[in-house]
Design a protein around this nucleic acid. Structure first.
Length: 730
DNA sequence: CGAAATTGGGTTTTT
DNA sequence: CCCAATTTCG
């Protein structure tokens, strides 16, 4: 293929705005990409186009995403378009890119290139220690609260010194103190937390002109995905990197900004045109994913937010089916019904991999979990308790970490007595204190003559460190990580201790560790020039969402946050109740707009069929089941887009929709269990009693066994399924 | 020092 | 309701 033909090929099949974005040359660009508008395609084709036209060389390209999954996908697609040239590009997450820069210049900031990356748990442990050192009451000032304050300060680019100057309350004074010490401790341990990766990368670029020049010159072409979710630090980092060439192309959708709790600042995208008055703006509004009905529902919902960037998603895929809305008795009925529906779909020939269930909080997956298991439906749950956060996995990783980073006291305290080998709290403190006093590595201290140890403790510590020395020698050989891991688990007695427990739980732990070893073996195979350090970095930046499997016939369960960037032909959104979604906390914090954007994200994941369910009663944290109010978001979706009878034609069946309706109602009756009513029993005007809502009057009857009831003391009518609702004629 | 028992604490979303 | 961390006892 000639060069020109190759270029034509790249532009083929793109719509005009997409093509515009792909072909844009020098200068800043804002691509407003609605859901499902083919933005990944635009980014990847743009990269290929820049290369093919000779405007860019591979090494000049920096393409940034938020998740590893997105980065991998982008990398694969770019590789598909341009081949091996993709290897010289930086296609990765913010965190990986920063970590890479920091490894290269760690010493500039007083770190070594072996620095450890701390997750939230590690952070809290270290903060707790700082609090204890200060004699601060950790009940009143919880490590959790401290961690969240510090993290939010970091994400706003507020350094410890600056924070200390602006304290306005005793609480903040303590935070300031802890923040300062925590930062110092991290440096001493040669460790950075997640936030530090970004923050220190900024510090490095600001502080060191040479480094800044190097990267700012290298990255002539910068592309950022999900720009609406960037925070102040990421913003600054991008500014520093693009100061030279100003070829910053950002892709995002303000309607999908859902990470303000992680300090994402929607203003970054809203004000992009103010930051770059010469920015070329492209709007991608044609959606290639969903039916028009689904898009209309999403458009109508998001219209309730103020200050959106004007846009209107459309598709030529046709209207498709109405959005299904279902009311269930409680979360069990809801889960049973969803399960039954899934089984029905699968019977009809739908692949399980085409089906997803979304919910607001991870806890909601439990009931569904149970029902699907009972029904024998294969599924995967994304999120929740994470593999790399399980105690045994963290232990194993901590062993490796300590081998690499001998200063990491957090890793040391985690593993020194795990498995139990008689090195208790006091002994560990002695070791740490000793290291502190002499200003030496924890490793070195632990090998030396630590004063004040009992004979037993000294022996135990000696044996432990002997094993560690052996492992360190093995690590120095740079062999496969999996082998080292395996050796470690045996050498340290970790597996023996688990086997000795002889419990099912311990067996599960052993299996998790086996899984860890095979994952490491995978790494050994995949990594081109792998190293223990790189392996550790990868695992610490690993997110559960990276684990989604899409080719094994599994129904996918996940939070709506995790669903961002994905699509499924058939989507269920459950728990559509005020308090659950929108979450009560968002209502309290008047953060409804972000919740609505989250709902928007959920709705726009669906390609063909969208079903929204809510339960009349839901269990709170403390056992009791309480009545609920259906989500205000449901009311924001025009009825005519749903299979709910519209208010005007209440009581009259809508032709064409009746069949599927009664089918669904029948399924629901079958699975909801409990006493059932026959809809025929009720007539308009009947007085009824509801188990929770009390007295009411039937004001309408609808197909599918729905009775519309007006309850005393309620401003509106409720539609109830006669066969499952706890109602009786009086 | 380790294991068991109790208590209290907290549940939005996560790179 | 469930987990974790602290406390208490052996």
């Amino acid at each position: 293929m000639s060069a020109d033909a190759a270029i034509d090929h790249l532009l083929e099949g793109l719509n005009p705005p997409q093509r515009d974005a792909v072909m844009h040359g020098e200068g800043p660009m804002l691509i407003l990409a609605g859901a499902g508008s083919g933005k990944t395609r635009v980014i990847t084709h743009r990269i290929a186009y820049l290369l093919r036209t000779g405007q860019a060389r591979p090494g000049e390209i920096l393409a940034i995403t938020f998740t590893n999954k997105a980065a991998n996908e982008m990398r694969e697609r770019v590789e598909h378009l341009v081949g091996r040239a993709s290897r010289a590009m930086w296609v990765m997450t913010f965190h990986s890119a920063c970590a890479r820069m920091l490894r290269a210049y760690a010493n500039e900031l007083g770190y070594t290139r072996q620095f450890t990356i701390y997750d939230t748990g590690d952070q809290r442990r270290l903060i707790k220690q700082v609090l204890d050192n200060h004699g601060i009451d950790t009940k009143r000032y919880t490590p959790r609260a401290m961690q969240s304050q510090i993290s939010s300060a970091k994400n706003k680019l507020i350094w410890p010194e600056v924070y200390a100057e602006s304290v306005g309350s005793p609480f903040e004074e303590i935070v300031a103190e802890v923040y300062k010490d925590y930062t110092r401790e991290l440096l001493r341990m040669n460790a950075m937390d997640y936030d530090d990766l970004l923050l220190n990368a900024v510090r490095l670029l600001e502080k060191n002109q040479e480094v800044r020049d190097r990267y700012a010159q290298q990255f002539r072409w910068v592309m950022v995905d999900e720009y609406q979710d960037t925070n102040a630090v990421q913003y600054r980092w991008l500014q520093l990197l693009t100061s030279e060439h100003r070829n910053l192309a950002v892709v995002g959708d303000d309607a999908q900004s859902i990470y303000s709790f992680r300090a994402a600042d929607i203003r970054n995208i809203l004000e992009f045109e103010e930051d770059y008055p010469d920015a070329h703006v492209v709007k991608l509004e044609q959606n290639y994913r969903s039916t028009q009905t689904i898009l209309d529902a999403a458009n109508a919902l998001i219209a309730n937010n103020r200050g959106q960037m004007p846009k209107h998603l459309w598709t030529d895929l046709g209207d498709g089916d109405p959005v299904r809305v279902r009311e269930m008795a409680d979360e069990y009925a809801e889960a049973r019904w969803v399960t039954a529906e899934i089984q029905r779909l699968v019977d009809e020939g739908v692949s399980r991999a085409e089906i997803a269930v979304f919910y607001r909080t991870n806890a909601q997956s439990r009931v569904l979990d149970e029902m699907l298991t009972r029904a024998g439906v294969a599924y995967q749950v994304i999120g929740g308790p994470k593999f790399y956060e399980r105690a045994e996995v963290k232990d194993a990783i901590a062993y490796l970490t300590f081998l690499v980073n001998p200063r990491d006291a957090t890793a040391f305290t985690r593993i020194a007595n795990s498995p139990k080998r008689g090195i208790g709290q006091t002994s560990m403190s002695r070791v740490l204190g000793y290291a502190n006093d002499l200003g030496i590595d924890v490793w070195e201290a632990a090998r030396g003559e630590v004063p004040g140890l009992t004979k037993a403790a000294r022996n135990a510590l000696g044996r432990f460190m002997d094993a560690m020395e052996t492992l360190k020698a093995k690590a120095a050989e740079n062999g496969p990580v999996a082998q080292l891991l395996d050796a470690l688990l045996h050498e340290t007695g970790y597996l023996d201790a688990l086997h000795a427990e002889r419990t099912i739980e311990a067996q599960g732990r052993v299996e998790n560790l086996q899984e860890l070893v095979s994952a490491a073996a995978q790494y050994d195979i995949n990594a081109e020039n792998g190293s223990l350090e790189e392996y550790l970095q990868q695992t610490s930046l690993f997110a559960d969402a990276d684990n989604i499997r899409d080719d094994e016939g599994l129904v996918t369960l996940m939070t709506m946050h995790n669903a961002k960037g994905l699509e499924f032909p058939i989507v269920f959104m459950i728990g559509m109740e005020d308090g659950t979604f929108p979450h009560s906390r968002s209502i309290e914090e008047s953060n409804l707009e972000e919740e609505r954007r989250l709902a928007y994200v959920g709705l726009t994941r669906a390609m063909r069929q969208l079903t929204l369910t809510y339960a009349r009663r839901r269990m709170g944290y403390g056992g009791g089941s309480a009545p609920t109010i259906k989500s205000r978001f449901l009311d924001e979706i025009p009825r005519e887009l749903t299979d709910q009878p519209s208010r005007i034609s209440r009581g009259y069946p809508t032709p064409g929709r009746v069949a599927s309706w009664s089918q669904a109602a029948a399924a629901s009756a079958e699975y909801a269990g409990g006493d059932t009513n026959d809809a025929q029993l009720f007539r308009v005007g009947d007085e009824i009693v509801h188990a929770q809502l009390g007295d009411g009057v039937v004001t309408g009857l609808q197909p599918g066994g729905i009775v519309v009831v007006h309850f005393a003391g309620e401003g509106r009518d409720r539609s109830l399924m006669a066969d499952v609702a706890p109602i009786k004629k009086r």
